[in-house]
Design a protein around this nucleic acid. Structure first.
Lengths: 156, 156
DNA sequence: TATTGTTATACTCTATAACTATA
DNA sequence: TATAGTTATAGAGTATAACAATA
């Protein structure tokens, strides 16, 4: 008998299973801040490239511009981001974090670290580092943009 | 400078990112067989426990019974599964694979292996085994049912 | 009265297409 | 005529609740 049988459903199934679980757990946890995962991703994107146009953000996240409008609407109504018109090209809406948005981003970071610890509770520091290495290798090979969740991608 | 900085977004983010990508890639691939991921999961569940009632399947997958009705409907119309009434308790509908369903399951296995290879192309055999180990450890700790995708779970 | 399965309905999320304003 | 953003509309997927059949 070989030392270990081939996995019943494949490693990628395990990856999907655990990844989906992690996504659901994060959604629940970030819900405590009254945020959805897409909103959180947008806040992060704006923080990483302040003043981007909505077109640029849509391009970065890989989502239709129309979806971005609704997302920005929600965050703007809550005072987390603001649209600023560009005087030299009044078609553009530059999106910026407000002070409140910046403050919330710190809370998001804290929640994300708690989430990280909870999901990876079974692994020690070395194992987490090893997992991160392996996943980073796969992510790079698969052409994933660092920090951008593929849930925005238009698949049709 | 320390040997490695803490990850910018956390390892669990990477897990979610890669896991979501894997799920999307699988959805696309299994679409070639005119199946959705939920349908695929149900076919596997029926294969693993033939003759289960719809209630039992719903319980196993963690989904409302009403959703199962629609899923079984779709697969039954395509001749992949069949409902058999239990003569001793005519409320129950035992779900079984048809011959066609069994044949399709073999195709699903082939597609799943191709998917596995494509997603994990960046890793050699040892690395894949290590990744599988780490993910299995996390999955067990997080209480995930082996072989059952958490996408069915009712979260509200 | 309890349980299995079904149907009816509504809600959320997202995409496609038409529209407005600026250039 | 082209581009940024918006609004209107429709579709897929899923949940909740009411219902029918059987026990």
């Amino acid at each position: 008998m070989p030392p270990s049988d081939p996995p019943p459903a494949g490693s990628a199934f395990l990856l999907t299973q655990v990844g989906t679980h992690a996504a659901q757990a994060f959604a629940q946890r970030i819900g405590e801040l009254d945020l959805t995962p897409p909103q959180t991703g947008l806040l992060r994107a704006v923080a990483g490239a302040p003043g981007s146009s909505q077109q640029a953000l849509a391009e970065l996240l890989g989502t239709p511009a129309t979806r971005l409008v609704a997302l920005v609407d929600g965050l703007e109504q809550r005072g987390l981001v603001e649209r600023r018109r560009n005087p030299s090209d009044r078609r553009l809406h530059a999106v910026h974090l407000t002070d409140e948005g910046t403050a919330l981003l710190a809370d998001i970071g804290r929640v994300a670290r708690e989430h990280d610890d909870a999901v990876l509770a079974a692994l020690d520091a070395d194992e987490r580092a090893r997992l991160r290495e392996l996943l980073a290798k796969v992510a790079a090979d698969q052409g994933l943009t660092p920090g951008v969740h593929p849930g925005y991608r238009n698949l049709r």
